[in-house]
C-alpha cells in the first residue's frame, strides 16, 4: 500500500460512493456535513498547495544620486501574500465538496446510508441505485400507543395488555401485510396484475415500482420475540420513517393490543451490508478512501445496478467500469 502526504493527489481520488452507518438522533444533513467537515479537516492537515509566486519589481531609483537617470530595477520573486492560507482561508472547504444520498433516513432511524462524494454524485443519480431493495429491522414494543409512534417520545394515546399475543399471531398479520403489498406492487409498476406484461415482469425477478411514490414491502418476517418487545424484518422500497411508524401502529391494533416503535435500522441495501459500513467513530479521510474502494468493488459485483451508459464512471486507473460491465454481459 502506498502512502502520500500530498493533499491534491488525495483530492483527485476523492470521488465515489461511501457506505456509512448513520447513528440514531442525528439528521441525514448533519451526517453529510460531518463527513464533509472531517474530510476538509484531514485534507488541510496534509501537505497543501504552497502560495503562488509573486513577482515584485523593486526600483533602486530613490537611493541613487540625482544626476544618474539610468534606472536599475531589481526583480524579486516572493510567495504571494494574496495566496497565503491566512488570507484566503483554508485550502479545502466544505462548500467545495459535493455530497448526495441514495436514500433518506429519518432523524431517529439508524443504519446504512450510501453517500456519493464529488464524482460519485453523478453515479448516485442512476435510477437503478434507488431501486436496490433495502432491508430494515424494526423494533416494536407492545402495550402502549403514542401520538408520535416512538415509545420514548410523544404523549400516550392508548394502553393495552399484550400477554395474549403469541408469536404466530404476529407472523400471520405480517404475512397478510406482505400479500397485500405483493398485489399492490403490480399497480405501482404500472401493469395490470392479470396481464401478459405482469407475467413477463414477474419473470425478471422483483417487481419494482416505477416512481418513488408508494411503499412496497416485499417480505415481512418476525426475527425474535420476547414480550413485550419483538423485532420484525422488512424488505422494502420507497419506504419512509413515517410509513413504518404508522405500520407498527396498525400492527398493534391488528394484534388486539397497542404498539410503538423502539428502533428502525436499515441493515442492507442490495449487496451493501452492515459489515461494509463505516461507524461514526471511523469517519475520517483514511477510512473513507478505503471504504470508497470497497464500495466501487461492490457496485461492480452487483448485477442489479445497470449502467447508465451516457454517464461515465471511471475507476481509479481511468477505466470505465460501466462499459466493461456491459461488455461482459
Amino acid at each position: 500500500m502506498k502512502s502520500t502526504r500530498d493533499a491534491s493527489l488525495v483530492w483527485k481520488h476523492l470521488k465515489g460512493i461511501v457506505c456509512l452507518y448513520k447513528p440514531p438522533r442525528k439528521s441525514v444533513a448533519v451526517v453529510r456535513h460531518t463527513i464533509k467537515s472531517h474530510l476538509c479537516r484531514d485534507l488541510n492537515q496534509m501537505k497543501v498547495r504552497p502560495p503562488t509566486p509573486y513577482v515584485m519589481i523593486e526600483s533602486e531609483l530613490k537611493d541613487l544620486p540625482a544626476e544618474k537617470t539610468e534606472s536599475k530595477n531589481v526583480i524579486k520573486v516572493i510567495p504571494s501574500y494574496a495566496d497565503n492560507v491566512l488570507v484566503t482561508g483554508p485550502r479545502y472547504v466544505t462548500e467545495e465538496i459535493r455530497g448526495r444520498m441514495v436514500h433518506e433516513l429519518g432523524y431517529k432511524s439508524s443504519g446504512l446510508l450510501l453517500l456519493g462524494i464529488n464524482g460519485g454524485c453523478n453515479e448516485v443519480k442512476n435510477k437503478t441505485f434507488h431501486q436496490l431493495v433495502r432491508c430494515y429491522q424494526v423494533g416494536v414494543r407492545l402495550g402502549l400507543e403514542t401520538d408520535s409512534g416512538w415509545f420514548d417520545e410523544g404523549r400516550g394515546k392508548a394502553k393495552a395488555s399484550f400477554k395474549h399475543v403469541p408469536p404466530h399471531a404476529v407472523t400471520t398479520v405480517l404475512a397478510s401485510m406482505q400479500a397485500a403489498h405483493t398485489k399492490c406492487a403490480f399497480s405501482l409498476a404500472g401493469v395490470l396484475p392479470d396481464s401478459q406484461e405482469a407475467y413477463e415482469l414477474a419473470l425478471q425477478g422483483t417487481i419494482k415500482p416505477k416512481t418513488t411514490g408508494g411503499c412496497v414491502i416485499y417480505s415481512a418476517r418476525l426475527l425474535d420475540f420476547r414480550l413485550p418487545d419483538f423485532t420484525i424484518e422488512l424488505h422494502t422500497l420507497n419506504e419512509t420513517e413515517d410509513y413504518f411508524l404508522s405500520m407498527v401502529e396498525l400492527l398493534g391494533i391488528k394484534l388486539r393490543s397497542a404498539a410503538t416503535t423502539t428502533s428502525i435500522k436499515c441493515v442492507q441495501i442490495g449487496n451493501f451490508g452492515v459489515e461494509h459500513a463505516l461507524s461514526s467513530a471511523d469517519w475520517d479521510l483514511q477510512h473513507i478512501l478505503k471504504n470508497m474502494k470497497l464500495c466501487s468493488k461492490l457496485v461492480e459485483e452487483n448485477s442489479e445496478i445497470v449502467p447508465n451508459l451516457d454517464e461515465e464512471r471511471l475507476d481509479v486507473s481511468g477505466r470505465n467500469i460501466y462499459q466493461d460491465k456491459a461488455a461482459n454481459n
Binding site: A82, N84, L86, V87
Partner: peptide
C-alpha cells in the same frame, strides 16, 4: 476579501 489588498499593503502583510 483582503487578498486583493494584501500584496500592496505593508500593514496587512505584517499582520499576516
Amino acid at each position: 476579501t483582503f487578498a486583493a489588498y494584501v500584496n500592496r499593503s505593508p500593514t496587512l502583510q505584517k499582520l499576516v
